[in-house]
C-alpha cells in the first residue's frame, strides 16, 4: 500500500459509536431524547442495551444515562400510595428491601430470578419492563398487582397502568422522549400466592413460561409470561374463579380456560405444546398454593 494515498476512514459511522450523555434532570434527559428521537436509547442498568449494541441489534446514536438523575433510586412506601420503586433501583436492592419482602414478596421473588446476581447488581425493574420482553420476570407480578408505571413525558409526570404499558414484543406505549421514573404498586390488605418460573436450568436462565398466581384481598389474579406477544393477565379465567371455592375440579376447569387465553409460540427454548403443558402445571400448582395458603 502506498503511503501517499489518502486513506478512507473506517467506521466513521461505526456500529458501536455513540454519544454518551449523563443528564442531571428529567427535563434535560427528555430534551436529549427528543433531539435524537428514535436514534436515542436510555441507559439504565444496561444489561439489555449493552448486549444488544454488542450483538449489533441496536445502533443508537445517543445513549442517555439516567442514573445521574436524582430521586430515581429510592423505594418509598406509604399506606395511601402503596410502594413506589424508582426506575434506577437495582433488582438486588429490591431483594433487600424489608417492605417489599414483607408485603409484596411475590414481586421480590420474581425480581430475584432475573439473570445472575451480577446482572441483578445492575439491572432494574424499570428496565426489565421497558425492554418489553414477553418473558420479563417482573412483568407478571406487576400485572397481577395492577401496578402503575410512572412516566415523565409531555405532560410532566403521569401514571400509566401496567395493563396499557405492554403493546407488543419489545414494544411499549412509551412515546419518544418518555422516561419511566418508577413503578408504583397499590397497597392491598393481603396478598397470597407465588411466582413460578419454568426454565431449562434452575439458575440464570430465561423463562420458558412464567406465572404469577395470587389472591389479592380474596380475588384471584393470574398473569403469565412467554405465552403471548406480551405478558398477559388471564382475565376470563379470573372471572370464572370469582367467588368460587378452589376445588380440584374448579382448578382443572380453570386450567382449560387459561389455555384458551394464551397463544404461545415454539422457539429454540421450547415448543408450543410444551409451553402449554407447563402453563397447565404452573396454574395448577399456583392455584393449589392458594388453597394451601388458606
Amino acid at each position: 500500500m502506498n503511503g501517499t494515498v489518502k486513506k478512507r476512514k473506517a467506521g466513521v459511522d461505526g456500529v458501536k459509536n455513540f454519544e454518551y450523555y449523563k443528564p442531571k434532570s428529567l427535563e434535560e434527559a427528555r430534551e436529549l431524547l427528543l433531539k435524537y428521537g428514535e436514534e436515542a436509547s436510555i441507559l439504565n442498568g444496561g444489561t439489555d442495551l449493552i448486549v444488544r449494541i454488542h450483538d449489533g441489534l441496536s445502533h443508537p446514536k445517543a445513549v442517555i444515562d439516567i442514573k445521574g438523575i436524582e430521586g430515581l433510586s429510592e423505594i418509598t412506601y406509604d399506606e395511601v400510595d402503596g410502594l413506589t420503586i424508582g426506575a434506577c433501583v437495582t433488582l438486588n436492592q429490591m431483594g433487600e428491601n424489608p417492605v417489599l419482602l414483607e408485603k409484596f414478596r411475590v414481586l421480590a421473588e420474581a425480581g430475584h430470578t432475573v439473570g445472575s446476581c451480577q446482572v441483578r447488581n445492575r439491572a432494574t425493574m424499570a428496565g426489565n419492563i421497558a425492554n418489553a420482553s414477553p418473558l420479563a420476570d417482573t412483568a407478571t407480578p406487576l400485572l397481577a398487582l395492577d401496578a402503575m408505571v410512572k412516566v415523565f413525558g409531555e405532560e410532566g409526570e403521569t401514571e400509566v397502568s401496567i395493563h396499557d404499558f405492554f403493546v407488543w414484543v419489545r414494544k411499549t406505549c412509551l412515546q419518544v422522549g418518555d422516561i419511566v421514573t418508577g413503578i408504583r404498586i397499590p397497597n392491598y390488605g393481603s396478598i397470597e400466592g407465588i411466582y413460578q418460573k419454568h426454565t431449562r436450568r434452575n439458575e440464570v436462565d430465561l423463562a420458558t413460561v412464567c406465572a404469577t398466581v395470587i389472591k389479592i384481598d380474596g380475588e384471584v389474579h393470574i398473569a403469565l409470561g412467554s405465552v403471548a406477544p406480551t405478558p398477559i393477565r388471564a382475565r376470563k379465567t379470573e372471572a370464572f374463579l370469582k367467588g368460587k371455592v378452589l376445588t380440584e375440579e374448579v382448578i382443572e376447569e380453570a386450567i382449560e380456560m387459561v389455555l384458551g387465553e394464551i397463544a404461545p409460540i415454539g422457539d429454540i427454548r421450547a415448543s408450543k405444546d410444551y409451553r402449554e403443558e407447563i402453563v397447565k402445571v404452573l396454574i395448577r400448582r399456583g392455584l393449589r398454593e392458594l388453597i394451601a395458603a388458606m
Binding site: 439458575e203 436462565d205 429454540i268
Partner: peptide, 27 residues
Amino acid sequence: LFEELILENGIAKNPSFVDYKIPTADD
C-alpha cells in the same frame, strides 16, 4: 441434561450462553 449445539441446515442456532446452558453451582 442441557448441552447441544443445535444445528439446522448447517447453521448453529444457539451459539451463546443465552440458549446453550452448562451447569451452574446450583446444579
